[in-house]
Design a protein around this nucleic acid. Structure first.
Lengths: 130, 130
DNA sequence: TGCAACCTTATAGTTAACTATAAGGTAGTA
DNA sequence: TACTACCTTATAGTTAACTATAAGGTTGCA
């Protein structure tokens, strides 16, 4: 598939795909004899990973490292472990924060559905303690 | 407390605090007779909320809305509910993605601890399906 | 063959969220 | 009283991550 088709499939811009290639997140793809980039299912997988990793708060730099780990380009086990461990700590605290925000928001929605009750709004409290 | 003390407490820059004030995330604080801003425990709470909401992927615009909801400046229940519901959907999918990334990373750490096994690296798979 | 809709590279512009600088006032201490 | 470390506002610069533009080549179809 061409870059345009890939971009449409994933709802991103073609420029963004080229940008990721420049940044080393995507490897140089095969080309047609007329120099067009060619992509396959694997490219869709990789870009889906990038999109979702971005959504959960990883920088492109982090994502690059994760992809390199996945590609086995990074072989020093200690480095991989260190990186994974520090990310894991962050991920766990993010999950806690998100859960706490989730509870608060669903409480708010419930309160909105019963407009008689005018309970206190606990939004700030949700992420303040702990 | 002064802006400098507040900034130190939360490990952010004084400029950032003033920036948040300009953006409407913090209300105009009291001033000393020499025009210095004065802050209290409540300011710490509010800034802690902002910091953590940012970490879990909210934009400053979203955070402003959440704070306004908290401050009861937004009273139209339907609006609050709509906002909360769309955020809630995003939060839930982020939690799923984070959990899946969490599992993958802890598997990697395990594999690193048993260097004899050279299992496949499932990083990309972690966020591709679903 | 002509033309719209693709593709290429290189480079410049945009947006969000800071971050630094300039120019000057204030407070506490040697 | 002078010095250092604060504070003020306004404005300019930075960084990450795109996003758009310019200038030109390619493909497929009427």
């Amino acid at each position: 598939m061409t870059i345009g088709q890939l971009a449409q499939e994933l709802n991103i811009k073609t420029q963004t795909i080229r940008y990721y290639e420049n940044q080393g997140l995507l490897s140089k793809p095969e080309r047609t004899q007329s120099n067009y980039r060619i992509y396959d299912q694997n490219s869709i997988k990789r870009l889906t990973f990038i999109k979702r990793a971005k959504e959960i708060g990883f920088s492109l730099g982090d994502i690059k490292t994760l992809l390199e780990m996945s590609d086995k380009k990074v072989n020093r086990c200690a480095d991989v472990k260190d990186f994974a461990e520090t990310r894991l700590i962050k991920i766990r605290s993010r999950i806690e924060d998100l859960k706490s925000m989730e509870m608060t928001l669903s409480d708010i929605i419930k309160q909105c559905s019963q407009p008689n009750k005018t309970a206190e709004c606990p939004i700030i409290e949700s992420l303040t303690e702990g």
